[in-house]
Amino acid sequence: MSLHEIIIAGFGGQGILSGGRLIAYAGMLEDKNVSFFPSYGPEMRGGTANCMVVVSDSDIASPVLNSCSALIVMNNPSIEKFESWLKPGGILITDSSMVTKKTSRTDIKVFEIPATQLASEIGNKTYSIVYLLGKLIKETGCAKAESFEKALYSVLSQKKHYMIPEEMEVLRVGMDY
């Protein structure tokens, strides 16, 4: 039985919500149960954003998480808020161009990718989340890269489809980083 409880957190505009939705969509394409719950509260008004994604073989109890098995953080406030939510053995993935604070946890697996910097180097900052999602699917197995690609074709509007091959390349760089 597999159960992935994922939190993605950062600033608004970093692709936090669309990234979470893509993971949920990819899970759905693999016939798994999925849920996606975005922050919509006062914290969103402050410019930070997070979402909770559950991908599971069995029925999903609550879409609202109080702990997680994997965490992607893209700014310092998010690592401060959520690092204690990770279960022992959980996976922490940080955008190390943005997150300068180091985790104090020693019972988790940590992956640091300078995602914003890598994305800037290839000239498209919106790809930063994709590097991190690559690492997420590689390390957790919550979805396959092929499903992610199919999800992109379904979720993105037709006029953005030309970007998908490049986005998949970015995903693979993230997977192997």
Binding site: R21, M28, V34, S35, F36, F37, Y40, P63
Partner: peptide
């Protein structure tokens, strides 16, 4: 409630 309204599911 806000959870049901805001959440996405299949």
């Amino acid at each position: 409630d806000g959870i049901l309204g805001q959440m996405m599911e299949v």
